[in-house]
Amino acid sequence: MRILLVEDDPALADGLARALRAENFAVDVAGNGEDGGHLGSTELYDAAVLDLGLPKRDGVSVLRDWRAEGRTLPVLILTARDAWSEKVAGFKAGADDYITKPFRTEEVVMRLRALVRRAAGHAGARIECGPLSFDAQLGQFELDGLPLRLTAFEWRVLSALMLRKEVVIERSDLIERVYEGDADVDSNSIEVIIGRLRKKIGADRIETVRGRGYRLTAGAA
């Protein structure tokens, strides 16, 4: 899962980005509304965390433009503005959720996971595909009822496939959901990660659809 964090307080942005990365999210950080608006309009994200009081452009105008462009990414507003009128303005602009500062990072993580899960069409937290299960609220995978140990990159790829199980996900889409914007990505990196996942969950459970990408299936009975 790849998150856009638009926050002008460097210390807060750094701390939240580190906390999200510790939970396996890929995070791109923008320190002003102009840069954040551009990234949200041109890059693929699973969700955005957006401050309202930003330099260059305020968060409400950024969000309003994203929605006018047809950008449907879930947006969690994170701001010190706690007046009801400010919340109404944020929701009217297209926000999906709203947290006021100060906040607990654990709550931000849980709300982001819920937003991403619902955006992928899953009402419940537990998603199953054959013997593989994913608690999308806790971010935990199990295979045959046992915890599955994954690296951060493996977790990002498998969560993207699991949230869209039985659907072909293009290779370029996976790359965008796995790596941060400034990452130096090897040409065969996704193939390497897919290979490692097949060893852990079974080779028949991740299909290669030539010329398109990959699909997670229930596999052999």
Score class of each variant (00 low, 15 high):
Gly90Thr: 03
Leu78Ala: 04
Arg64Asn: 07
Asp204His: 14
Leu76Thr: 12
Ser189Phe: 10
Gly31Ser: 14
Leu112His: 05
Ser159Trp: 05
Leu50His: 05
Ile175Trp: 09
Val185Thr: 10
Gly181Ala: 13
Gly202Asp: 06
Leu197Ala: 03
Ser159Lys: 10
Leu39Asn: 03
Ile127His: 10
Glu86Pro: 01
Phe25Tyr: 12
Asp8Asn: 11
Phe141Asp: 04
Asp14Asn: 12
Gln137Phe: 12
Lys101Ile: 03
Ala120Asn: 09
Gly145Trp: 10
Val192Pro: 00
Pro10Tyr: 03
Glu23Lys: 14
Ser85Thr: 10
Ile3Tyr: 00
Pro147Gly: 13
Ala89Trp: 06
Leu39Val: 02
Thr208Met: 03
Leu174Ser: 04
Trp155Asp: 06
Thr100Gln: 04
Leu76Tyr: 12
Cys129Asp: 02
Thr100His: 05
Arg171Ile: 02
Ile193Phe: 00
Arg215Lys: 15
Asp184Tyr: 12
Leu216Asp: 00
Ile169Trp: 02
Pro10Gln: 12
Gly33Glu: 10
Pro147Asp: 02
Asp46Met: 10
Asp144Glu: 15
Val62Ile: 00
Lys101Leu: 11
Arg71Ser: 04
Ile77Met: 09
Leu161Phe: 06
Arg21Lys: 12
Val6Lys: 02
Val49Pro: 01
Ala183Gly: 08
Arg81Tyr: 04
Tyr45Met: 02
Val209Asn: 11
Asp97Pro: 03
Trp66Pro: 04
Trp155Gly: 01
Val109His: 07
Ala48Ile: 00
Arg64Lys: 14
Val192Gly: 05
Asp182His: 14
Gly31Cys: 08
Ser189Arg: 07
Leu50Arg: 00
Asp14Val: 02
Thr79Leu: 09
Asp186Pro: 12
Val75Ile: 03
Ala220Ser: 15
Ala68Phe: 04
Trp155Lys: 10
Leu78Asn: 04
Ile201His: 05
Phe103Asp: 01
Arg71Asp: 00
Ala221Gly: 11
Arg177Met: 11
Asp135Cys: 02
Leu5Asp: 01
Leu54Gly: 05
Phe134Asp: 11
Thr72Asp: 15
Ala11Cys: 08
Arg117Cys: 08
Gly124Phe: 13
Tyr179Glu: 04
Ala114Arg: 15
Pro10Asp: 13
Trp84Leu: 14
Arg64Pro: 03
Arg71Thr: 06
Arg111Phe: 09
Gly181Arg: 15
Arg117Gln: 05
Asp58Val: 03
Ala80Glu: 07
Leu146Ser: 15
Gly31Tyr: 13
Lys200Tyr: 01
Gly202Cys: 11
Leu44Thr: 15
Arg198Val: 07
Ala220Ile: 15
Ile194Met: 06
Ser61Asn: 13
Gln137Trp: 13
Glu86Tyr: 06
Thr105Leu: 10
Glu154Asp: 08
Ala83Phe: 02
Ser61Trp: 07
Lys165Gly: 07
Leu150Lys: 04
Ala183Pro: 09
Val192Ala: 09
Ser159Arg: 13
Arg196Asp: 11
Ile175Met: 12
Asp65Thr: 15
Ala11Trp: 03
Asp8Met: 00
Ser61Ile: 01
Ala152Gln: 09
Leu132Asp: 07
Gly139Met: 02
Gly145Phe: 08
Asp184Glu: 15
Thr217Gly: 08
Asp144Gln: 14
Val29Leu: 07
Ser187Tyr: 11
Leu138Gln: 15
Tyr45Gln: 07
Lys165Val: 10
Asp58Arg: 00
Glu180Ala: 15
Ile175His: 07
Val27Tyr: 01
Val178Gln: 02
Met110Asn: 14
Gly219Glu: 05
Glu43Arg: 15
Arg198Pro: 05
Met1Gly: 13
